[in-house]
Amino acid sequence: MNAEALLGCFAAPACIVTQVSAGMIIGMLIFLVASGVTLIFGVLKVVNFAHGSFYMLGAYLALTVYGASGSYTLAVLAAVVGVGLFGTIFERFFMSRVYNADVLMQLLVCYAFILILDDVVKIVWGGDFLKMGMPREFALPPIKVWDGYVPPFYAFLTVFAVAIAVLVGALLRFTQFGKIVRAAAVNRQMVSVLGINTSLVYALIFGLGSMLAGLAGALAAPVRAAVPGMGFEILIECFIVTIIGGMGSMAGAFIAAIGIGLIRSFGSIGFPLASEGVMFAIMAIMLLVRPAGLFGRKAS
């Protein structure tokens, strides 16, 4: 615990700006992964435990494509499309076989994929930390905010993540596809009786959720080192966020993710060893006081 450093930081606007922007990008990455999990769970009622590995896959794909083409735009696209496709295949050939089995089976299918993907990444990219560095597109002078400086990529990442979240939300709320999805979440059988191919809807939603994970991975590549096993770390944070924010609530996940991001970044100054503990403490208090989470509907 280093309260002095923390207070010192709160006294200096430059430090606050730096830490808030760092916290925001951590939060946004967690939010993107968590929203993928939430989306899939909301409709399909299964939890993709392998979602963190999808995020990892996205980061590595972006790294490779950026290395080959030098275009970050292309890298992001490749990660989104690649992981989206992978997720759809995973759903069609593996996950869909255990929808009616119990949680244990679903967990094990995902666990098998976590093992396999970690190893595949090790074979293809090696087990060491890989760094992408700041993409050329963002080699710009930092933006001056208040008394501090924010790297342009940080600002881009935050705005972009929010925009994507709004876009997905709008897709579900205002389009025909969104209506079908929401109906399928309530009663799959009824929707399929109406002549709609619900298997396709499920695969698309799983693909969409996976794309969010791939996007998060691609956005993480410039600011975080890629390493096998990186998926699991974010998965845990993602679960904490879902529990604090309320299960199935995107808004809750958003607020909780920002909270966790800020705790992480300020915690790295004030209480580096305890920042994890603080996250758990908040989760524990939430479970005691409001088991359904910030925005969750009352648990049955």
Partner: peptide
């Protein structure tokens, strides 16, 4: 040394195959 892949495939076979 790629013990994860083999174990993962065995696990999938047990879960999806034998059930």
């Amino acid at each position: 040394e790629h013990h994860g892949i083999v174990m993962g495939v065995v696990l999938l076979a047990v879960v999806l195959g034998l059930r």
